[in-house]
Amino acid sequence: MSLPSAFPAASRDQLDALRAELSSARRLRGPALPFGVPMLDDRLAAQGLDGAGLHEIAAASSRLGDDAAASLFAAGIAARFADQGNFTVLWALSRFDLYAPGLEQVGLAPSQLLYAQGRNDQEVLAVAEDALRDGSLACVIAEVKAADMTATRRLQLATSDGKTPMLLYRRHRARDHCPLTQNSSAMTRWRIGCLPSLPLPHPGVGRSRWSVELVRQRGGNPFSLDLDACDDKGCLAHPALSADRAIASAGKASRVA
């Protein structure tokens, strides 16, 4: 004898009520922001990035090239959040080495980007939390070296209070120690690294490619994809077909012009 089968009608009602509650909660949170890359969006539990959640981004290694790729990944997401109505993005950090013309080239115009430079990680996190609760921003990016479970929990609560997405960019503290090994209450956690780009038929450098790895997500499985980097609107793209990729090994030396 099994209990659920004893009350089939009641459980269906309950299920319907739960589903309705869930959908209303989803509607309240606002739609998720899709990446526009079907392979990526299909594997995300929310079909995109939750507009009221905490997302963590880290570089695949402590090398500065990967670090720059991860910053651009964050900037691209922020640009697409901000694109929905000329809103402002706050970038909180403690050591300022961003170059604004480079950020403009992934869609974050200087009029859309506000910087907040704190003295240490505590100040940066406090600024991010205040900005999230204010609710007048399109997106908040915070660059920190360390944020423990309590800090991420606070940020996660603040994002759902202010209905503002939060991108927590974790910098490497030491070589060979991924910052994403720490526990966190983020909705998604991303690890971004550089990949060699596809060769061009003429001398020059093509669109860069990244290995986009979703380390963890709520309600879904981790996965890893190779994607083309952000364009000038911050959109990722599906990589070219594998047939083209075969040329890569061919004339490498000839491309150094």
Binding site: L114, Y115, G118, A126, D130, A131, D134
Partner: peptide
């Protein structure tokens, strides 16, 4: 928001480029 944040950090820490 700008007022509130400049209370958290030093006022010149909040800027645009």
């Amino acid at each position: 928001l700008v007022d509130q944040l400049s209370g958290r950090i030093e006022p010149q820490g909040l800027f645009r480029i």
